[in-house]
């Protein structure tokens, strides 16, 4: 464990808590893409199957349970409890266009052709594009509530911090994982446009308005 990865995990937990609080407090999931939340739930389900087979550390197991529980709770809140506030019309990204290419790529490019490893690889590829429906929704509505932009900033920062973690681990531990690094770079690049808008607008108290 290093400071970059720990900061990344905290940013990740922070993003999830911001989202849950936003939905719970406002009793609405307006402006949030349910499809992205489903993709995140799939990411954690396919990545953390080893929760019961491989013990890494207490921290690792606790965080896996936390991510599985909170992603399930978010999907439940969006599609069951506050279903009436879910923005079906704008949340129209075809997630099969993400699921199928990620599944095919994970069958072709992976570290080991075993069920667990291919599912882990699928989860890594899927996570890198899972935010696309959310960014698509924000671009369609042309704006995002400030709380939603804080959520996206924290979520984007988590994998950006993981990139620093991988640099650190390569230099210090001679450890690297090209699949995770490649997907992490793609994932972080997808947020760059949003990071720019967040820093130039939201931090100045303006609303996040996308150029129409």
């Amino acid at each position: 464990m290093n400071i970059f990865r720990f900061a990344g995990d905290l940013s990740h937990v922070f993003a999830i808590i911001i989202l849950l609080l936003k939905i719970w407090k406002t009793r609405s999931c307006a402006g949030i893409s349910g499809k992205s939340q489903i993709l995140f739930a799939v990411v954690y389900l396919t990545r953390y199957l080893d929760l019961f087979t491989t013990y890494v550390s207490l921290y690792n197991s606790v965080m896996k349970v936390l991510f599985l529980a909170t992603s399930g709770a978010t999907v439940y809140l969006m599609y069951v409890k506050f279903k009436a506030t879910y923005d079906h019309n704008h949340d129209s990204f075809r997630i099969e266009f993400l699921l199928i290419p990620c599944a095919l790529l994970s069958l072709v490019i992976n570290h080991d052709f075993t069920v667990m490893e291919v599912l882990w690889t699928f989860s890594i590829y899927l996570e890198s594009v899972a935010i696309l429906p959310q960014l698509f929704l924000v671009s369609k509505t042309g704006e995002a509530e400030s709380i939603t932009s804080h959520y996206l900033f924290a979520l984007g920062s988590y994998r950006a911090l993981y990139l620093l973690n991988w640099v650190y681990r390569y230099m210090v531990e001679s450890h690297y994982d090209l699949i995770a690094i490649f997907a992490g770079v793609v994932q972080t690049i997808l947020y760059c446009d949003f990071f720019y808008l967040y820093i130039t607008k939201v931090l100045k108290g303006k609303k996040l308005q996308l150029p129409a």
Partner: peptide
């Protein structure tokens, strides 16, 4: 340098 056999990251 080695790729991770066991995935120790979240």
């Amino acid at each position: 340098a080695t790729a991770t056999a066991q995935h120790d990251e979240l």
